[in-house]
C-alpha cells in the first residue's frame, strides 16, 4: 500500500488502461448526453400535456382576440415538434425562454434560486456523509445489540416520510422549544431543520451501505492479516476496512446528491425554502412551461453531471470498474 491517494486493493496498472479509460470516458459522456436528451424530451412533452397557459395568464373575461394574440406572442401556435426543436436549440445556448409568470428570462430566474437549493442539498449531503459513514462503520464493527439498534434506527430513518419528519421537527424545536427558526431568511440556524430533514433518507441509506460493505470486508483475509500483524483495531476498521468500501459509497453518494436535489421539492415546500423546488411547484401551478422546463432540465443536468463525476471518481479510486457495467444490480433500497 504505497499509494496514498488511491486507496485500492492492489496497485493499479494505470498506464496500461489509460486508452481504454479515455474511450470509456467518451462513452460515458455521450451516454450522459443521451440521457439529457431524454430528459428534455420528456420534460417538454409532459409540460405541454398539462394544459393551456394562455387561460391562466389572462383573466377569465379576456376576449378571444387577446387570447390568440398572446398564444402567438408566446409561440404556442406553432406545431409541437417545431416548439421542441426551438426549445432545444435555444437551450443549447443557455436560453430557456421567458417565464410567463414572471415575464423574465428563465435562465437567470433559475440560477437565482439554484444557490438556495444547492446550499440545502450540500448541507444535507454533508450531514448524511458525516453521520452516515461513521454510523455504518460502527454498526458493522460492533456486533450484537448495538449493531441491531443502529440498524433499526437507520430503518426508521428510511420509513419516515421526510416532510412529516420536517413537520415534527418544526413542532418540537421551533414551536415547543423555540430553539430554531422556521423561516428561510438568512443565517445558518435557518438551514438546520430543512437540511436535517432532507438528509435523513440519504443518511440512512449511506449508513446501511457502509455497514453491509464493511461486514463483508471485515471477513476478508487482508483484514485478518492486518489484525494478526497486531495493528490496533481502530486502524484496521477505519483505515484498511473503510477505504475498501469507498467505491460503492462514492457511486451511491453521487446518486444521493442527485436524489437530494429532486427530493428537495417537498422539503422546500415544507420549510418555505426559496429554491428551485418551490419555484418549479409554483411554475407547475401556473402552467409556466418555460420555467418548468428550465428548472427540471437544470435539475436533470445537475443529476447527470454529478453521476458522471462520481463515475470518473470511482474509476480513479478503483480502475477495475472503469470499463464495467454502468447500472448497478444492487437490490438495496
Amino acid at each position: 500500500m504505497s499509494d496514498t491517494t488511491l486507496p485500492s486493493l492492489k496497485p493499479s496498472p494505470r498506464r496500461a488502461t489509460s486508452p481504454l479509460r479515455s474511450r470509456a470516458l467518451r462513452a460515458r459522456v455521450s451516454h450522459a448526453l443521451a440521457v439529457l436528451f431524454g430528459v428534455s424530451l420528456l420534460t417538454f412533452l409532459v409540460a405541454h400535456a398539462t394544459g393551456d397557459p394562455v387561460t391562466l395568464l389572462l383573466p377569465a373575461n379576456a376576449p378571444e382576440a387577446t387570447r390568440i394574440a398572446l398564444a402567438h406572442h408566446l409561440g404556442l401556435d406553432q406545431p409541437l415538434p417545431v416548439q421542441y426543436g426551438l426549445f432545444l436549440l435555444h437551450a443549447l445556448q443557455g436560453d430557456f425562454g421567458r417565464s410567463f409568470l414572471y415575464g423574465q428570462p428563465v435562465a437567470p430566474l433559475v440560477l437565482q434560486t439554484l444557490p438556495a437549493t444547492l446550499e440545502l442539498a450540500a448541507a444535507a449531503f454533508c450531514i448524511a456523509l458525516l453521520v452516515g459513514l461513521p454510523l455504518g462503520v460502527l454498526s458493522a464493527s460492533r456486533g450484537g445489540v448495538a449493531s441491531a439498534a443502529l440498524q433499526l434506527l437507520s430503518m426508521l430513518g428510511l420509513a419516515m416520510p421526510a416532510f412529516w419528519l420536517g413537520l415534527m421537527l418544526v413542532l418540537v424545536f421551533a414551536v415547543q422549544l423555540h430553539l430554531l427558526p422556521v423561516d428561510s431568511s438568512g443565517g445558518v440556524s435557518h438551514l438546520v431543520l430543512p437540511a436535517l430533514t432532507l438528509s435523513l433518507l440519504s443518511l440512512a441509506r449511506i449508513s446501511r451501505l457502509v455497514r453491509s460493505g464493511m461486514q463483508e470486508i471485515l471477513d476478508r483475509d487482508f483484514i485478518r492479516t492486518a489484525r494478526a500483524r497486531g495493528l490496533p483495531e481502530w486502524r484496521v476498521v477505519w483505515v484498511h476496512g473503510l477505504r475498501n468500501v469507498l467505491v460503492p459509497v462514492v457511486t451511491m453518494a453521487g446518486m444521493e446528491l442527485g436524489d437530494l436535489l429532486s427530493s428537495a421539492v417537498v422539503v422546500e415546500v415544507v420549510f418555505a425554502w426559496p429554491g428551485i423546488g418551490r419555484l418549479s411547484v409554483e411554475a407547475l401551478g401556473a402552467r409556466d412551461f418555460p420555467l418548468l422546463q428550465g428548472t427540471v432540465f437544470i435539475a436533470g443536468l445537475g443529476f447527470v453531471l454529478i453521476n458522471l463525476l462520481a463515475d470518473i471518481l470511482c474509476a480513479r479510486i478503483d480502475p477495475r470498474i472503469a470499463s464495467g457495467a454502468t447500472s448497478s444490480g444492487s437490490i438495496a433500497p
Binding site: 409532459v46 418549479s280 407547475l284 447527470v304
Partner: peptide, 23 residues
C-alpha cells in the same frame, strides 16, 4: 432500456409525478 432507466433516474421524480397527475 438502460437509456430509459437512466432518463427516469435523472428526472426529478416528484416533479414528474406532479406533471402526470396534473394531466
Amino acid at each position: 432500456i438502460s437509456w430509459l432507466i437512466d432518463v427516469q433516474l435523472a428526472f426529478p421524480f416528484t416533479l414528474f409525478a406532479l406533471f402526470l397527475l396534473a394531466v
